[in-house]
């Protein structure tokens, strides 16, 4: 059997056998990335919306910076968060390094700008559409932000899914701040990196296929929810 068919049959065995260890790792990945995306949503979407609606000096620079952050290497985020959380760093007293919380923080830093950048574009387009209407109603800008966030909720799902995709698939940041500790901070991606470095390439690919399956299921769920919601409000 060649490496690929071996990997695929191993992936099915992992999925079918419901390997307890794999389930644990998938669970941690979902928890960490899910929370990071939740925090990213709470921070990134309002931030993006403010940038989309606001008109102030330096806004263009902020937009460029934000779009640039979409390409931020996860390793850089990992190192920066590591230095912050390290015992010798400014937040060292919290003792958060090598914990799932640290991984959530790092991934939040990673996905919030991405989600904000996508939200900014979405909200700005919608704002152009409603601007006259809102101005005549003399809506305060903060109300405009709130209303547009609500109005674009279906399109903003794309921002959330992009954040989730980036969080679930990144390895650099969680590896550095989580430490890839067995049964504590090992996620799908760090497990894949570990199996690759142990030379067990079929298992690495199999885990990759499991990760892909998980991401596909999440995207499918999101699509179903979106369609249900769209039917509600045309």
């Amino acid at each position: 059997m060649n490496a690929f068919s071996l990997a695929i049959s191993e992936a099915f065995a992992l999925l079918a056998g419901f390997d307890h260890r794999v389930a644990e790792i998938v669970g941690l990945s979902l928890q960490v990335s899910g929370l990071a995306v939740l925090l990213g949503t709470l921070i990134g979407l309002p931030l993006g919306a403010c940038l989309g609606v606001g008109r102030f000096r330096g806004r263009q620079l902020l937009v460029i910076a934000l779009n640039g952050c979409m390409g931020l290497p996860s390793v850089v985020v990992g190192v920066v968060v590591y230095l912050l959380l390290s015992r010798s760093g400014p937040l060292g007293d919290l003792g958060l390094l090598y914990s799932p919380t640290a991984m959530v923080l790092a991934q939040t830093v990673l996905v919030a700008p991405l989600m904000a950048a996508i939200a900014r574009q979405t909200i700005e387009d919608a704002w152009h559409d409603y601007e006259e209407e809102f101005r005549v109603l003399r809506l305060r800008w903060i109300d405009s932000v709130r209303v547009l966030l609500h109005d674009c909720r279906h399109s903003l799902l794309v921002a959330v899914l992009a954040g989730l995709g980036r969080a679930m698939s990144e390895v650099g940041a969680v590896m550095i701040v989580g430490g890839n500790i067995d049964r504590s901070t090992r996620t799908m991606t760090t497990a894949i990196a570990l199996e690759t470095s142990k030379g067990d390439l079929p298992l690495a690919v199999a885990l990759g296929l499991v990760l892909l399956a998980v991401i596909l299921v999440l995207n499918g769920l999101a699509l179903v929810v979106r369609q249900w919601a769209m039917r509600r409000y045309a």
Partner: peptide, 12 residues
């Protein structure tokens, strides 16, 4: 108050 020829309605 003003009503535009093509009023924009929120998805609400």
């Amino acid at each position: 108050a003003m009503v535009f020829q093509h009023a924009r309605m929120l998805r609400d």
